[in-house]
Amino acid sequence: MADLFPALFSNYLILCLGAFVAGLVDAVVGGGGLVLIPTLFSVFPNVAPATLLGTNKVAGVMGTSAAAINFARKVRIHWAAAAPAALAAFALSFSGAYLVTHVPTDMMRKALPFVLLAVAIYTLKKKDFGQHHAPLLSGSKEKLYAVLVGAGVGFYDGLFGPGTGSFFVFLFVRIFGYDFLRASAVSKVVNIATNLAALLWFSYSGHVIWQLGLLMAVFNIGGSLVGTRLAMKHGSSFVRKLFLFVVGALILKTGYDAFLK
């Protein structure tokens, strides 16, 4: 019994540190799940995966919300694109979560590393990609594309998930003409919707450890506040570099899961 408390303390310390780092990374370019989900699975190998994913969403929703609020204080969030994208993402993430129990995701798992590789190559080749804020869309066309982006990535998040935040950032730069900083700010708003939809589903099905999720949320919020300050201090060039780093890590992780695991 005496040995149990140091073990529990070290496990919770690892989780809190993981939540902080995940919040920092996720606040800037998305991809926080790349850090926190493997940490949860390593600390609790015998807990049902759905329960760990649901518990992760508690921290994710709160950390992403804190990042969005922090961004909104310093960066103008373009609500004409953010609001319809968030509504579409919320609705379609439910559909994806439902289908994941009925549709095999093996093909998507194998295709994902190559999609991410294409994103990384495109970003590397275009040196000025996302460095200047020059919006390309307006009016009804902007709303239509926002709905399509929100629906497409939201559905993917519910069905599969890895790299959702990074996909949002990339598409808001590529399609809407935002710089990386503003794309990241808008992505946070949309990502709240996908995370909240998933959390509602997991909570309804009883797959959330609320005490653990709320503990991690405190540290995730702390990391997200540090991340947003770093992004606003160093600007789009910093966000671009971190984006490429996270996408590179996602390529390695998803490639390993798809072909070597």
Score class of each variant (00 low, 15 high):
33 G>Y: 03
35 V>H: 10
36 L>Y: 09
36 L>D: 00
37 I>H: 03
37 I>Y: 05
37 I>E: 02
40 L>T: 05
40 L>M: 14
40 L>V: 04
40 L>Q: 10
41 F>I: 09
42 S>R: 14
42 S>E: 13
42 S>P: 10
42 S>A: 15
43 V>W: 09
43 V>S: 07
43 V>K: 00
44 F>G: 07
44 F>Y: 12
46 N>T: 12
46 N>G: 11
46 N>Q: 13
46 N>D: 14
47 V>Q: 13
48 A>K: 13
49 P>N: 04
49 P>S: 09
50 A>E: 15
50 A>S: 15
50 A>W: 08
50 A>V: 00
50 A>H: 15
52 L>P: 12
52 L>F: 06
52 L>D: 12
53 L>P: 06
53 L>R: 07
54 G>M: 08
54 G>H: 06
55 T>D: 10
55 T>A: 09
56 N>H: 00
56 N>M: 08
56 N>F: 04
56 N>Y: 09
57 K>H: 03
58 V>L: 05
58 V>C: 03
58 V>W: 03
59 A>L: 00
59 A>R: 08
59 A>C: 05
61 V>S: 11
62 M>D: 00
62 M>E: 00
63 G>M: 00
63 G>T: 06
64 T>D: 02
64 T>H: 04
65 S>L: 15
65 S>M: 15
66 A>D: 03
66 A>Q: 11
67 A>S: 00
67 A>Q: 06
67 A>E: 13
68 A>R: 02
70 N>K: 13
71 F>P: 07
71 F>K: 01
72 A>S: 15
72 A>N: 10
74 K>N: 13
75 V>K: 12
75 V>D: 02
75 V>C: 08
76 R>G: 06
76 R>A: 14
77 I>N: 11
78 H>N: 15
78 H>Q: 13
79 W>I: 03
79 W>P: 07
